[in-house]
Every structure is written in C-alpha cells, then in structure tokens.
C-alpha cells in the first residue's frame, strides 16, 4: 500500500481539501481519477503537480476528436517498414523496431511508476472510453503484430479530465474516482493568486478580486473568467505598470478576462467596464 496523504498540493498549486483527498484516494486505490470542472480551474495543472509531488514522470495524452484508443497503446509504422524493405535499411524482420508506443503504452511499460494524464477524454469518439476499459482495469495490453504482452510493473496514477462526464459510458465511470473541481471561493482564490504573485499588495489584490467576482456575477456570460485568466490579468496589470488604482474607473485589459465579443458587450452595457 502506498503511503496515504502524499499529495498535499505544492508550492505552486493550491488544492482544496476535497481535491487532495480525492487524489489520495485514487492513488491508494490505484484507480483512475476523473476530474471535472469549469475550464481554467487547473484540471491539467493538477496532473503536473501530482507527478511533482510523487516525484515521478508525467506522461501526457491529449485527446482529439480523431484519437483512437489503440493509438494510445502503440502505432505500427508500416510505411517505414515497407520503405526499409525496399531500400534495405535495418532489419525488417524485426517488427518491434516499427512499433512505437503511445502515451498509454509508455505508461504501462515503464519500469517505474508514472503519472498518466488523459486530457479532455470527452473530445474523442463515443466508444473511446469503452475501448480503454480493459487496459485501464488490467493495466496490460498486447501488441498484436509481435505477440508481445506488456503488463505494468507499477500501476500508473491515471488522471483523466473531462468537460462532460454525462457522455462517458457507465461502465467506464464505475471504475473511476470522481472529483468535481468547484470554483474557488474568495479565500482560496487569494491564496492561489498569492502563489503566483507573492509581491501583490493586499489592497490591490482585494480590488482585483472585487472586479473579478463582479464580472463572474454578470448573468449569461458565455465564458466567465476563470482562475488562469485572473492570474494572467494581474500579470498584465503588473507588467504594463497601469496604476491599479485606476481599476475603480474602468477595467484595463478586459480582453485578458473576457474572451468573446458578446461577453464584452454585455459587461460594457452593465457599466462595469
């Protein structure tokens, strides 16, 4: 059994108690951790920080709409092999030379424990999660071309992020530990900002948070500003040297906080900017 409570957040990543607990449960039970939450709440960053805390390698697998489950295990490069057979380079009889492991394949064949991040799993084809069930459960797979079986020496810590768990199959969900990253409250948020901007004056931080949470309360924003945008915005303010006292008058660099024209318009209409 691994030592429980190993993940406590890091110097650069502040995690809520619930999140810490969920990570530790997933690590101890050796089950995938499924994370959901508004964009910009640090789902992807978490994986980096878990890897950092556990002092292991992080393997990332970013999912696209065309990603196939098998690509994550390995890719058999037939063209290279045909090419070699034609021009006589290398040993074409050795198929394994043309097998390239994908992120999941690498994670499973690693001699050490690793953290595997499967990012935005809901983007893939609908059957994608089902195709991964066996591999994630048994933590082994077979390379058909060579007949080689690969079993993980150490079950990797799997962190999966999704923006829409409703579209994930039940069988898949049942195997996961689920955590919903709630939007940080003011107190947690000021801790998070402090980590990134330690030299920010208390009063200025207060003003920034006022503006930030004020914006989030504007109804029907298509994309309310999130943590990462707040941090970028404060950075922009600092870099430009715009007097933060001006915040009272209007919001400088609104574009770092709001990302659609429509949102801008509705904020301007309400006289906030």
């Amino acid at each position: 059994m691994t030592h429980f409570d190993r993940f406590q957040g890091t110097e650069t990543y502040i995690a809520s108690d619930d999140l810490r607990h969920a990570v530790n449960v997933a690590v101890a039970l050796e089950r995938p951790l499924l994370l959901r939450g508004e964009p910009g709440t640090g789902k992807t960053l978490l994986a980096e920080n878990v890897a950092h805390t556990l002092e292991v390698e992080l393997i990332r697998w970013h999912i696209k709409s065309t990603t196939k489950a098998r690509d994550g295990l390995y890719i058999y490069d037939t063209v290279a092999r045909l090419h070699d057979s034609r021009f006589g380079d290398g040993d074409v009889k050795d198929i394994s030379r043309y097998i390239e492991l994908g992120p999941l394949g690498k994670a499973l064949s690693s001699p050490r424990r690793v953290v595997l991040l499967i990012d935005e799993i809901d983007k893939a084809d609908i059957e994608f999660p089902n195709d991964l069930l066996l591999e994630l459960d048994a933590m082994r797979f077979r390379i058909d071309e060579t007949g080689q079986d690969i079993t993980a020496a150490h079950r990797p810590v799997v962190i999966i992020t999704s923006n829409n768990e409703k579209e994930l199959p039940d069988a898949f969900l049942r195997r996961c530990i689920f955590h919903y990253i709630e939007f940080p409250d003011r107190q947690l948020m000021s801790r998070i900002v402090r980590v990134h901007h330690p030299d920010l004056a208390e009063k200025v931080l207060d003003q920034c948070l006022d503006v930030f949470y004020g914006l989030r309360e504007v109804p029907r924003l298509r994309k309310p500003p999130s943590t990462s945008e707040l941090i970028d915005w404060i950075l922009a303010l600092k870099k430009s040297g715009v007097s933060l006292a001006r915040i009272g008058g209007g919001i400088p660099f609104l574009g770092t906080l709001l990302k659609t024209e429509q949102d801008m318009a509705s904020v301007v209409k309400r006289g906030l900017a």
Partner: peptide, 8 residues
C-alpha cells in the same frame, strides 16, 4: 462521494 457519485 468520490467513489459512488460520478455526476455533479
């Protein structure tokens, strides 16, 4: 909750 519930 983290084990049994998979939907906010």
């Amino acid at each position: 909750r983290s084990i049994c519930v998979k939907d906010v």
